[in-house]
Design a binder for these strands. Structure first.
Lengths: 352, 352
DNA sequence: TTTGGCACTCCCGCTACAAGAGTGCTGATT
DNA sequence: AATCAGCACTCTTGTAGCGGGAGTGCCAAA
């Protein structure tokens, strides 16, 4: 438990809890009188003021000005979500809606979009889902097509139906027939393995082939090496409902809104952030400045990693103002992650 | 010439011109005193006030309130851009920057992104480029891969290196070998033709093959028919620099901004609008409500279609507030369209 | 330790007022 | 007939003042 839970007695925590809840629902600084009525403890406003002074000393709450109520600080929110939160399980209607929408019937790309849309609609904030990581994708098929200038268009299919393509430059000019042969060769020996496994095998085979000096195979493997070079298989995410964020007063400032949206389009920062979330499994929360990214200063990010076959492959979540209904958002994110993972499970989809 | 140019004398037009120019550069309603100094005609403010009253009667300018200067209306802007505008050719530095960035060295997808980015950076507004239309694309290669449940993953390549994929459902279950054969058949007879031509040929051949009852070919052509069904080859565009629009006071209203961005993400409305622009060749301008789309009410759209081999294949442009520097934006858009068209010209890229 | 009381601070909305900018109109000038 | 100076009028903008309300901090009593 954090340092604060030891320093503070039960009563102070109870008051902090009601304060945060009240602030989240109203958006107004909450004063001692309201708090006195709202909490079940029978305390006078005066007593509560004393407690508030203590909480302020600890940096858990903050007064916008002398004569306003108190507002939770980032630490206050943090203590709240870590120790005081009572999550509200989602009702059966919402649950069945989620289950219905996330049943395994579309391809991965669609599923990600659907999950993102669901999160955005459910929370009225922005939903984000990363595309599954490459480690678990399974290589299925490759094709080489000649372009001009020693360039070759590589098309490869992973998993069930995901198509990737890139252009590689070859040292020498290959005829269409040679390319066809190379593709056949690669398809015949690597199909079915994971991309990572293929990548490793390719490196190993390249050395072997070099010794055996079989030019055709060597060419094929050389091209495969380029094709599966992971550097330009960039991580990516699908973001939906950004515009929902425009309504929040926390983002009323034009510059703040602009830098947030710039970060969305820039992508790299968000990817890094989501990457951190993926490491911790289960629900992960960044409140305000905790993320370390200026653009997210007044936002919170609630994420959960999602897994296929017990392996974490991606992360999804919700972006909104720090003042969000965590007790509802957290279960939304949690369940969506579980359902998405289940829906993407290849075992669930019938074999070829 | 429009009705107004006949009704109005030279002087009034001259004044309208300076008014619009002044308003565009300052963003403030412009009054008679400023106008008197700004215009070369030696007129007293009083005289100008008379002229302004006339222009207001004609609906070309408008007073925000009794004692403010005048602001151009949509009709005012229209008259300005149609008849009064003196375009500023871009300087050699800008021109060479454009030419350098848009030289034919990347694939189509990249080029579109680059053009969009250039427009956004140059104008500090939002740049948009539609992806080239399918009519002129040239079919190159097709591949069928079996999925579960009679579903087939179709991958086809057009032009130099554009890869498309979709999933079709087949009436019966095909073996991988059969699919391979079908692909070979289609590749052998349709490669090199335009997609439209292929689409037509496929329909014709399907009828012929049916009579000849060659089952293999019939299957192949049936699948090709599904693959090239144009219904789900949706038009699309690349939009860059949306966030630039957040700075403009015209879009300060949160709801207005939201509905604009919603339209961007929705895409269909914007596509329809851009489609209209494509019909008129050369530069096309929608000012404010002229577009007919609520979300664009306070925006202007300056577009130009771009052509490859003398055939219009797409449209690009700039989205910004009605109060934009048309005299600079128009040449930007114009030149970018020409350069993009040239860069995409297949003749410019060496043959295979 | 809790509580009522009280003075104090600060925000917010309202009003008033003066300055500034620009207009419309009128009547004189050319 | 066109132009223009002058003037009264309107409307915005900024500033200042004022009262009410909300909430605090502190103190002294229970």
């Amino acid at each position: 438990m954090g340092k604060h839970t030891q320093l503070l007695n039960e009563r102070s925590l109870q008051l902090l809890k009601t304060l945060v809840e009240r602030y989240i629902s109203d958006g107004q600084p909450v004063g001692s009188r309201v708090l006195s009525k709202d909490s079940d403890l029978n305390l006078s406003p005066a007593t509560i003021r004393n407690v508030m002074a203590d909480l302020e000393d600890l940096g858990l709450v903050h007064s916008p000005h002398t004569s306003a109520g108190r507002v939770p600080t980032v630490s206050g929110y943090r203590l709240f979500v870590d120790n005081l939160l009572t999550v509200k399980p989602l009702n059966t209607q919402e649950l069945s809606h989620l289950e219905g929408s996330l049943s395994a019937q579309h391809d991965t790309g669609h599923m990600i979009g659907i999950a993102s849309r669901l999160l955005a609609d459910l929370t009225q904030m922005a939903g984000v889902v990363t595309v599954p990581r490459r480690e678990i994708v399974c290589f299925r098929h490759i094709e080489f097509l000649p372009l001009s200038h020693n360039r070759v268009l590589v098309i490869f299919v992973t998993n069930e139906q995901e198509v990737h393509n890139k252009i590689i430059h070859t040292a020498k000019l290959f005829s269409p027939a040679e390319l066809q042969q190379a593709a056949n060769y690669i398809n015949s020996i690597y199909t079915g393995r994971s991309l990572n496994a293929v990548r490793e095998a390719v490196i190993k085979d390249w050395q072997d082939d070099r010794e055996r000096v079989n030019q055709g195979m060597l060419d094929a493997v050389t091209m495969a090496q380029q094709a599966f070079n992971q550097d330009d298989l960039k991580d990516d995410y699908v973001l939906v409902g950004e515009t929902n964020l425009m309504g929040f007063s926390e983002l009323a400032d034009r510059d703040r809104l602009k830098s947030l949206f710039d970060a969305f389009y820039q992508k790299q920062g968000v990817i890094d952030l989501l990457d951190q979330c993926m490491k911790a499994d289960g629900v992960q929360i960044f409140i305000g400045e905790e993320s370390g990214y200026q653009a997210f200063d007044h936002c919170s990010l609630v994420t959960s990693s999602y897994s296929v076959s017990d392996e974490v492959v991606g992360v999804l979540g919700v972006i909104g103002p720090t003042r969000m209904a965590y007790e509802k958002i957290i279960p939304y994110v949690d369940i969506t992650a579980k359902l998405l993972g289940a829906a993407l499970n290849p075992k669930a989809t019938p074999p070829l």
